[in-house]
């Protein structure tokens, strides 16, 4: 899938947050995503990553995303 489509999914799930998406291999299925959002405030790392997984449930579920690396930050 495209970086833009992935970024839109994350921006919808994390309004007003800083989203960075990188296609790590250029093949459209290995991505690094970084999300800085106030939604992460007070959440454990596991809970933060769950929110990102939930936002990308469709492309993760059907294998469109083959490998995903997630980094989360509380918004500065």
């Amino acid at each position: 899938m495209s970086v833009d489509r992935l970024r839109r999914l994350l921006e919808q799930a994390f309004p007003g947050s800083e989203v960075e998406v990188k296609d790590r291999t250029g093949g459209g299925d290995h991505f690094q995503v970084t999300v800085a959002s106030a939604r992460f405030g007070g959440l454990t790392l596991l809970e933060q990553h769950r929110l990102v997984n939930d936002a990308l449930a469709a492309p993760l579920g059907d294998g469109t995303i083959h490998e995903l690396r997630i980094q989360t930050k509380g918004s500065q």
Binding site: L45, L46, H49, R69, I70, Q71
Partner: peptide
């Protein structure tokens, strides 16, 4: 108890 996937385990 689930600790996480690669990102979390590596970060920890």
């Amino acid at each position: 108890e689930l600790i996480g996937g690669a990102d979390i385990v590596e970060q920890l």
